[in-house]
Design a protein around this nucleic acid. Structure first.
Lengths: 226, 226
DNA sequence: AAACAAATTTAGGTGCGCCTAAACTCTTCC
DNA sequence: GGAAGAGTTTAGGCGCACCTAAATTTGTTT
């Protein structure tokens, strides 16, 4: 399935899936959106969207928006499966730190053969989530559950469980790891500063909630909770 | 170092190194030779050689031949190091059979980061040869020893040790594996058939030489011995 | 020495994915 | 309802690595 597509096509499909996934608004997946996500010009995105439409992988209505077809979503999920399996493998088998696995997986995902994918999955015991808490699409490529809400959207005073953290910013990941914000961690939102100010929270460690941390809105939006 | 080159450039440099390595004649590395090796047209090879010359990675004298510069050889050795480390890793850590590791490594070698290379080498205990017996260029990229002679060139009646086997033909590798021709194996050449006919040999197994095998010239030339 | 065959290079062209600049469309706001 | 501005698309081009067909060079052969 993947063999008939280029790395660029795979990146667009994966990007479109991810953009659609963590934005509920209907008009979320725009030409500009995918262009920014992939760091290409809007003009480049337009021509690729036209091409993907011709290939039957997306439905692109000029000036209106894009949507993945079932065929396009399957490919996106396969790339995502590769990416997340690789992240998990690099972290577990090769000891690569969780802030670096994303960049490595980003290039490896496009050249991973079916056979190697299988070998890696088997070696890991067919994991269902990567080190950042993102679900690994299963072999049959059924759509995994979307994230719930971000830490920023959680009301003050509430106890919650960290579900996923964004994998793309190494600096953010190093900080999150240092303060103990990782999938499965329990946290309590204490409050927020004024004017999109920092969010104050405490993180549970060894059964007790530790000292208070102040994190920016941007960072709080890179953490999803349950 | 590798990051500033494309996969195509890396493939040409690696190919030029390998062609020069296993042919003693001075005029061995020709436009046609590298074109065939890479399965591209001679015209394509010419334009790439011109480009590599301009980049200072080879010296190309039109109509006369090509030779790697020191800079070009370093890159070739780095690609080769990636390739052979990956082959070894895939075989040892992931259980990929020795006839399949080459094809996987062929694409992975171009996207392996320095850091991952290091992690893999460490995990394997810094191996010096891959599963087919080919030397893995060390981190400092000094040139490893070239192969000695092929099984085809060995005189009849002589006891010898298998040093390396060609990694590129899966069918050949499956056969060689089945009859026990692998690096370190001891063998005795019994004779040859007429007109480039098959080579007859016996392979040592559990301390005793087994039954006689007849192998083609092509296959005998894909095995190097000491 | 000329002619020929083989090897090599040049000429001209393709698809992919990217770019900038210019034109267009949609929406909103007066 | 028309104009402005944001968003999007079209037009035209570029670099990479490949191709075929047509020159050119080399080395050999007569």
């Amino acid at each position: 399935m993947l063999e008939s597509t280029t790395a660029a096509v795979q990146d667009y499909l994966k990007g479109l899936f991810l953009l659609a996934e963590d934005s509920t608004s209907p008009r979320a997946v725009t030409t500009n959106g995918i262009a920014q996500h992939l760091a290409v010009s809007p003009a480049s995105a337009t021509s690729m969207l036209k091409k993907l439409d011709a290939m039957g992988l997306v439905v692109h209505v000029p000036y209106r928006g894009v949507e993945l077809t079932d065929a396009g979503r399957k490919i996106a999920l396969e790339v995502l499966r590769h990416h997340r399996l690789l992240e998990t493998y690099l972290a577990e088998a090769l000891g690569v730190s969780w802030d670096k696995v994303h960049a490595e997986a980003e290039v490896l995902e496009h050249v991973l053969s079916e056979e190697l994918e299988e070998a890696i999955a088997a070696r890991l015991g067919h994991p269902t989530a990567d080190p950042h808490g993102h679900p690994i699409p299963p072999k049959d490529l059924t759509t995994p559950p979307p994230p719930d809400r971000t830490l920023w959207d959680a009301p003050a005073g509430q106890r919650l469980t960290v579900d996923r953290v964004s994998d793309s910013d190494p600096e953010a990941l190093r900080y999150l790891g240092a303060v103990g914000i990782r999938p499965g961690a329990r946290a309590e939102v204490r409050g927020r500063g004024p004017v999109a100010g920092p969010l104050f929270l405490r993180i549970e460690s060894d059964g007790a909630f530790g000292e208070e941390h102040a994190i920016s809105k941007e960072l709080a939006e890179a953490v999803w909770v349950l």
